[in-house]
Design a protein around this nucleic acid. Structure first.
Lengths: 297, 297
DNA sequence: CGGCTTATGTGCAAATTTGCGCTGACTTCG
DNA sequence: CGAAGTCAGCGCAAATTTGCACATAAGCCG
């Protein structure tokens, strides 16, 4: 590769454009001696004269004119790129990647729909997977995490919504087994618990501690499998109040308790946290979360 | 303008392409600390993060991906440009601009035609004008000058042909006035001279000195006007022997003399003199000039 | 023709950039 | 789970680049 110093190309470009070393030096904001040395170096590497030197300035040779055309196009493209990048910092366009756990999709989707409508030039990607998408690799711009506060470095974490969990069961189950009177005496009632040894969710931890193991007749390792189990009448299970507010075949068995609560964390990478796009979205999500409390009240 | 350092763009390009600072440093042949500093500087100027930093390397953000595309195109174009320029140094293609005085066109044209045929990819421009085209401004690659040796600086001057001048007159003139016996006694014969006070051509200087003013009945300021005057029977005039070798209506009156001779100079700019294109052409022209002597012998 | 302006070119010193060695963090593999 | 390999980041010294002053040459303009 001959052009291993793009700055020299830029210098040569200005010389070719303006015709004089002094003019180019002024345009570049450097000393004219620097311009001369750049040109000399570039010509040395190329083995070709780019300019004919004379007392009135530098006249581009054919090679110099060729370089002028190419560098002009480069200069234009870089200027446009600079505009795009600088402008993008203050706009809400492009791509916004949000990652979360799948169960939050019903909760978040309305807010995402509103945000998408408010910023039509934005493409939203909503990623959910078993594995955790990592903000520090640029896999997502915003993450909504549940459970204990994430402490990944370089991540900006803020609590933005408190999920209230209650115990629910399907009408079919209640018709067959009746409604338990108290959590201290669960009788033969069946609860849906976690298959994990040390479940992250606080309500699962509570369940493991306060409900006899023989009453936990069904265990899941993914939360998404829990609600279908409840609907099928397999037992009594936890669900966030927002999810069951309008449910028809599911009935609340015990109201929410503080120790079951699971906070939602809004996580952004520190590099992206200040951008208008992320800030606007975070604000929108917080506003929307205020309405979520109304649903259950 | 944000991109006032194209080298940093080049560095960022390699980082975006390879994904790691170390890889980019190796590709660029610099220390990885330099790469980090370039990226930091560039991001600082743009006010935007181009990469997300993590332990496995640098992942381009949207802005970084945008830059990658633009810089990739720039890199390609510069590589192509380098190939064109480097290749051109050893090829005989493109443009070859030759300047001369108009009267030499009949002499040079056959040689130019041969050269053009030998190098079909070459475009030849043959410029003649009253004003002197200046090689140091890149107005021409090769100049063929007549008269005293040019001494412009930075020009490579070489003598390549000796024009022999003789005195001619048209048959019509000779029929009317007869043929002069000797140049010491020109009688009432009419000579065609120069309108200039100090003519450059040696034969005009000789004429002014040895022929009485009253015998110089017709004066021109451009040599091109001389031959039509001779043909019209206006008088006796100088012409190079090569021009009249096959003339039918023009007859030699006095044979060439050494003091009338005018050498032709082949002049190239020092910057272009070493290029294959110019070298090839100069060699061709010298070879051709060897044949010109045969015409008159 | 001669002063004035504007241009390029060069030696030397200051300033900036770069390279080096080292540290710490993460990933992968056995 | 521990060792090896890879990567980014940082302080300091060396090397390169740059700026400055000055010299020189050519065009401009009465």
């Amino acid at each position: 590769m001959a052009f291993n110093d793009w700055d020299e190309v830029r210098t040569a470009f200005q010389v070719a454009r303006l015709g004089t070393v002094s003019g180019a030096a002024q345009a570049l904001g450097v000393h004219h001696a620097t311009v001369i040395r750049h040109i000399d170096s570039l010509e040395g590497k190329l083995g070709t004269k780019l300019f004919q030197r004379h007392a009135r300035g530098y006249t581009p040779t054919e090679a110099g004119q060729d370089l002028l055309k190419v560098a002009q196009s480069t200069d234009d493209q870089l200027a446009q790129l600079a505009n795009r990048i600088k402008g993008r910092g203050n706009e809400v366009t492009g791509e916004l990647i949000i990652t979360s756990i799948a169960v939050l999709a019903p909760l978040l989707s309305p807010a995402l729909a509103e945000f998408r409508e408010a910023h039509p030039e934005l493409t939203i990607k909503f990623l959910t997977d078993e594995r955790v998408f990592r903000l520090e690799y640029g896999e997502a711009h915003v993450a909504i995490r549940a459970g204990s506060a994430p402490d990944e470095p370089d991540n900006v974490v803020q609590k933005f919504y408190q999920q209230d969990f209650a115990l629910y069961a399907s009408k079919a189950y209640l018709d067959r087994h009746g409604k338990p009177e108290s959590l201290d005496d669960v009788g033969h009632h069946v609860f849906i618990g976690s298959a994990e040894e040390n479940p992250r969710a606080p309500f699962f931890a509570w369940l493991k501690k306060h409900i006899p193991a023989e009453n936990i007749g069904y265990q899941v390792n993914q939360i998404t499998a829990m609600r279908p189990a409840m609907q099928a009448g397999l037992g009594i299970g936890f669900s966030p109040t927002w999810a069951e507010a309008n449910a028809e075949d599911i009935e609340m068995v015990f109201p929410p308790r503080p120790e079951w609560c699971s906070p939602l964390w809004l996580v952004t990478h520190v590099d992206l946290h200040r951008t208008a796009k992320v800030q606007t979205f975070v604000k929108h999500l917080k506003d929307a979360s205020l309405g979520w409390s109304d649903i259950v009240s």
